[in-house]
Amino acid sequence: MKERAFITLTNGFKDKLFRLAKRLLVSNEEAEDATQEVLLKLWKNKSKMAEYKNVEAFAVTMTKNYCYDKLKAKETGNLKIVHSNYQDERPSLQRQVEAKDSLDWVGKIMNDLPKQQRMIIQLRDIEQYDNAEIAEMLEINETAVRVALSRGRKKIREELLKKHNYGVV
């Protein structure tokens, strides 16, 4: 496969990989790096590409694994506070600040979810993959996808309700 063909192929889902990496790693730069790494790995193994049933799904799985490794390295490397979420000690103040942009607030809620729920909501509600595809990408079964999806969405609803009831502006 030629370079150009490869780039055209991957351009179709490159942004999706980037958004997933950003969802997991939060930082823009790290997400860019992750996307590059995954695509390069894919390029190096281009000879095997024909064997993959679905290159896009495979790339998503690779991205997930790459980000997991990164997150693990960060935890053990004592770098936990870099780009992760700071502890919420004074919710009212924080809420006030964040409520300035209510959409950011949704993002914040989402990034507070456990990794798996976060990914599943990302893949389903933002990228609009169906459950079967997500199950394949994340290497879990479809029921687990549906359960995690529902839990994640309910958690978001709960947090949104809280915010609404506090009426912070």
Binding site: S102, G107, Q122
Partner: peptide, 21 residues
């Protein structure tokens, strides 16, 4: 907000171009 956020998020794109070194 929720659905607005979802549709906004789906438009984010990676800025760096892939360089095959």
């Amino acid at each position: 907000d929720l659905f607005q956020y979802f549709s906004n998020e789906s438009t984010i794109t990676a800025t760096k171009d892939l360089k095959i070194k």
